[in-house]
């Protein structure tokens, strides 16, 4: 006597089991929409980081991660070797100041790595296949956006979490559990905020073309162009600092500063030559709204674009 199990046929006494029955009916649980979202999320994260892909696809995303992490590793090394409280002595940057070190990695990751995540599915025909599953358009796009945001958070939060833990172990960390938790929340909050803004903007540009090269150029132009143009207009031409709302890097940095409790007036506002000094003139609510607007506008562009693709209505 034998009885069917989910994965094979098992003898009544459990002594023998046929594990390989080849194609057979499946009567086990099905995870529905939640399972579909999870599968696409995990798959997209692996895809973005180049996992399970040829080596050439691993190079760029991990280079971005390394670029973000290396300064943190160097700072921790210096702190360990010199054995003094380098943060209090203003020798090493504070947590909020580390954002300047990850901007290059953010630029690199959003400009070159992120566009592939949407473009590839449209180019290789996976989109109609995905939409023939429990996924709907909104859940597909949400899975993709979440995958980008999570992997981007590795860059926006990873180095700072490493610094926090390393400084704490080394003895230069926040004093007391309350302050430690405050720093942790600020790292997580600012990391998520920056990742959300950058994700929305880069996905919006990527959704406009089926060509990866065009998407890369578009994202790079958006990041660099918005930064250069608004900085010139505000810093050089002395125009309204609210134009910084169009500067992805600076408006993200401004939100990060507010999360760290560094609102107007900023400490370096006295330094008239410092780029971005007039960010301090922006009200906190304006900074918050500007970042939210980037996220909403990015989501709207992606939704608008995908609603016009054949078979997604």
């Amino acid at each position: 006597m034998s009885e069917s199990t989910e994965s094979g046929v098992e003898a009544a006494d459990g002594a023998a089991q046929i594990l390989d029955q080849r194609y057979r009916p499946y009567h086990g649980p099905r995870h529905g929409l939640a399972g579909a979202v999870r599968a696409v999320l995990v798959s997209s994260m692996r895809f973005t980081l180049g996992l399970g892909r040829p080596a050439r696809h691993k190079f760029l995303p991990w280079l971005a991660v390394v670029v973000a992490l290396v300064p943190a590793i160097v700072f921790v090394g210096i702190a360990t070797v010199l054995d003094i409280d380098l943060i209090s002595e203003n020798i090493l940057p504070e947590y909020h100041e580390y954002y300047g070190y990850i901007q290059a990695a953010l630029f690199f990751y959003c400009g070159i790595v992120v566009p592939e995540i949407l473009v590839a599915d449209r180019r290789n025909g996976m989109l109609p296949l995905y939409l023939s599953t429990p996924l709907r358009l909104w859940s597909y796009l949400a899975s993709k956006a979440a995958a980008v945001a999570v992997t981007l958070s590795v860059i926006t939060m990873g180095p700072l979490l490493f610094l926090l833990v390393a400084y704490t172990v080394e003895g230069s960390g926040p004093a007391g559990i309350g302050e430690w938790l405050t720093v942790l929340v600020r790292i997580l909050g600012s990391g998520i905020a920056i990742a959300a803004t950058m994700t929305a903007a880069s996905l919006a540009v990527s959704s406009l073309t089926d060509r990866r090269a065009f998407a890369v150029i578009g994202v790079v132009l958006l990041l660099l162009g918005s930064s250069l143009v608004t900085s010139s207009l505000v810093e050089t031409a002395e125009l309204d600092p609210r134009l910084y709302a169009f500067n992805l890097f600076e408006i993200g940095a401004a939100l990060k500063d507010r999360i760290y409790g560094i609102g107007p007036p900023l400490a370096f506002v006295e330094d008239n030559g410092a780029p971005g000094r007039r960010l301090s003139e922006l009200a906190t609510w304006f900074v918050l709204c500007a970042n939210a607007a980037w996220v909403l506008a990015g989501a709207a562009v992606v939704w608008w674009r995908y609603r016009r693709i054949e078979g997604t209505q």
């Binding site: 499946y26 995870h31 599953t133």
Partner: peptide
């Protein structure tokens, strides 16, 4: 991957992918 997206657990999807 497509079997997982259609709702099968990971281990079952892996087995059935080879079978199919």
């Amino acid at each position: 991957h497509l079997a997982q997206v259609r709702g099968l657990p990971r281990s079952e999807a892996r087995t059935r992918a080879s079978d199919c």
